[in-house]
């Protein structure tokens, strides 16, 4: 169970995130996971000072494009690039776009975290 979780859609994402920025909350991270037909993206924030955590969750299709929150929180740029590399989630207008080569090299497997991708599971148990 995740406490303080709020479901939103990608259209209201920027407004919701702006509210956190106005309240001087710290951005913690994004978590993306593959649900098969769509992706689940969760943004975690932390009210400062204090240690209360709040989460925003949205579901997006695999070929949909989501807005970038790096205009509000620059620090989100690393995890947005990571989501693009690992899951192929398209993020629009990232402050720094590594073009899919932030963590992965040129010869690395493509979209390694996607569930049905054979490249992701190399051998295993």
């Amino acid at each position: 169970m995740i406490e303080n979780l709020k479901e939103i859609s990608k259209d209201t994402l920027l407004q919701e995130v702006q509210k956190f920025a106005d309240a001087k909350a710290r951005f913690v991270t994004t978590v993306c996971s593959d649900l098969g037909d769509k992706l689940e993206v969760t943004y975690y924030f932390n009210y400062s000072p204090g240690v209360d955590m709040v989460a925003l969750r949205m579901f997006v299709g695999k070929d949909e494009e989501v807005p970038s929150i790096s205009g509000i929180y620059l620090t989100a740029v690393l995890s947005e690039n990571e989501m693009f590399e690992q899951y192929g989630l398209k993020v629009k207008d990232m402050a720094i776009d590594f073009g899919g080569l932030m963590l992965l090299g040129k010869d690395s497997p493509v979209k390694p975290m996607v569930k049905d991708n054979a490249a992701g599971g190399k051998g295993g148990e």
């Binding site: 920025a21 001087k24 710290r26 913690v28 400062s48 929180y73 620090t75 989100a76």
Partner: peptide, 9 residues
């Protein structure tokens, strides 16, 4: 302010 906005810890 910068430290909070940059999400440092």
């Amino acid at each position: 302010e910068q430290a909070i906005l940059l999400g440092n810890n």
